[in-house]
Design a protein around this nucleic acid. Structure first.
Lengths: 355, 355
DNA sequence: CGACAGGCTTGACACGTTTTAAAGACATGT
DNA sequence: ACATGTCTTTAAAACGTGTCAAGCCTGTCG
């Protein structure tokens, strides 16, 4: 049972290999009768094209690389769904890998992408310098930054305004009466964490409060376990704040869990808000307020941009797409009405439709 | 800037291309001095191996295909994490795709895997007939079934005993005093749904109850939205049952949400239990009882089995690994003590450590 | 009838790597 | 000096597809 290639098909159909190749790649240049004969042979022999040979010849594969920060975070799996859907529609395969927030793993996996001759790469970079992605661009591999705005005009990016999101979240907490806040955040190197912090500070300033109204609590990861750790440090560290803003929902869920377990009432004793509005936040013990991002769309649009650039590198104009986040208020941050009545926070859906 | 290949490296280092290849693949066969010279050239020229050429020559790539049923389900993303971790350790890339529970998409994506010359495939099949996977085996591509036991001795599988799991769940509900039950399930074609149902019936029989104590409520998908739909049908359809068993946690979270919204008390009015014990179930509005599976391990072990088979197809002995699930009891199914005191349900951790 | 155009098809080569058989260099033992 | 063996390097031949210039055929026009 020798492997069946373009050559065997050609023989079976009584044509030359070149013609079979034409049937596969430019069917319009082949006479209808011949085409049918070849197509029948393809079916009968169960031929499937050898992608590595195509790739070798073409110089690039029909595969896109996707690198996320954390596969366990629903935010990224939603993005991945968007990517997979678009890629699948276009017949592309998706090479998945996770940097696990490590620059070293990112570098290693990017190298694998390059070896595999990926058509293009979608990446949420760990660092801010773009050192790793530049190596791809140098090799002529298109890169689209995912959830990461860029000032550079030589690449596409799709992101959500995290500064605005941070401002939205903290603005809401302040409008709700909070005066002492804690920001639970991940590694300072992550742009997401830094930007949301910036937005938080901006909201403080707008409310006439100083920086010292916001205490920072940094943990080494962005998952629920790290959130639990943060909450324990919070409980051990003197008087509780009025409100806690977490850099993402996983952290917030961890915080929530430990607070409730310690008998702290949310939102009465402490108001809580997260970020990302993952599907499960609405179903939490205390439904979690959050900042919603168009996650699935992020993945879709980034992939469309990438494939557009791949198909026409010349005519493609790089775009920096920036979405605006949306505040979703649920029970975890709905305290007694604030003294100051200026409640300008835009309300999320009265009862979230998601989940 | 012509692309730099093995040939350019050879020229730069003053050796033949064959020697460079040897440095890359069997370094021990080349003299230390030459090796160093070549390695320096590799670094200086920034050479990275062209994977498609390797693949073409070798007949298979260093990539494994992973096909899941639903990327939005944390169960599968946990599995995917296990797969990605092991693959990454071994320098393999992961080609990800989702069948979205559609046999047609499964077929299409498997074809893409075959084109890409994947080394092997990990798959949670949609149907039970193995028609799609057989096409891979015929082509000599190793297949490991994920979360799907197989009677066939010619392939590996890694699964969790779903019949036992269903029995565990329903046995617990019965021991807790429930006498009328509803099973909320997905498409009957999914083996997971069918097996868990089988276990449920077995538990009924063991308790001396007939089939009619378990009403079935089938919905077309296995996500939270479908769960909400099920709950609405439940509310519309006459008197509520004592307890509801959902075929997975996403369904259960959807059911929970709609029940609570309708003023139904869980577990007082209706006890509820899910399946999979995803991270978020412990943090739900009413912490959700569930059946835990070693999800991440499932992915790891399946991948190890697959790579073992790839590395030594001859010496490899196919294995059917079967894990036992574990009951995790939380608030959603802890009603008033049952009349009959035989509470033999094994308790999960008193306070789940996860999340 | 010959020339020519246009549509189809062909044959051969290139893509970059791995592998294999063979050649070369050198030392050892006879 | 020669045979023998070990260690290292090389040249050439694949792997299966895409492309391109050249060839073939048919029909049309002069």
């Amino acid at each position: 049972m020798g492997t069946v290639g373009i050559k065997q098909v050609a023989e079976h159909a009584g044509v030359s290999p070149g013609t079979v190749s034409n049937v596969l790649n430019r069917p319009e240049r082949v006479a209808a009768g011949t085409r049918e004969r070849v197509e029948r042979s393809i079916r009968e022999l169960g031929f499937v094209r050898n992608g590595s040979a195509s790739t070798l010849r073409a110089g690039h594969s029909s595969t896109v690389g996707l690198m996320v920060l954390d596969l366990a975070n629903p935010f990224f799996t939603d993005v991945a769904r968007g990517v997979e859907d678009v890629a699948s529609e276009r017949g592309c395969a998706v090479l998945l890998s996770s940097s696990a927030e490590s620059g070293e793993r990112e570098r290693r996996n990017i190298r694998v992408f390059a070896e595999q001759q990926v058509r293009g790469v979608l990446i949420t970079p760990v660092g801010d310098d773009g050192q790793n992605t530049d190596r791809l661009s140098e090799r002529g591999i298109p890169v689209v930054l995912l959830d990461h705005p860029t000032p550079r005009a030589n690449q596409c990016s799709v992101a959500v305004d995290d500064v605005a999101g941070g401002e939205l979240a903290v603005g809401h907490l302040l409008a709700d009466g909070a005066r002492s806040l804690v920001y639970v955040t991940g590694p300072a190197a992550l742009r997401q964490c830094a930007d949301r912090r910036k937005g938080a500070l901006r909201a403080l300033r707008a409310a006439g409060l100083g920086k010292d109204a916001l205490r920072e609590l940094a943990v080494p990861a962005m998952n629920a376990r790290a959130g639990e750790e943060a909450a324990r440090r919070l409980l051990d560290g003197g008087p509780l704040p009025d409100a806690v803003f977490c850099a993402n929902d996983l952290l917030a869920l961890g915080v929530l869990r430990v607070l409730l377990q310690a008998g702290v009432k949310v939102p009465t004793d402490v108001a809580l808000i997260g970020y990302d509005d993952i599907e499960f936040s609405a179903a939490a013990a205390v439904p979690l307020s959050s900042v919603r991002q168009p996650t699935y769309q992020l993945g879709r649009i980034a992939t469309e941009l990438l494939l557009e650039e791949c198909d026409d590198p010349g005519g493609h104009a790089h775009q920096q797409v920036m979405f605006q986040p949306e505040l979703v208020v649920r029970d975890s941050s709905r305290r007694a009405r604030p003294l100051t009545g200026n409640d300008q926070a835009m309300a999320g859906e009265p009862e979230g439709e998601a989940l």
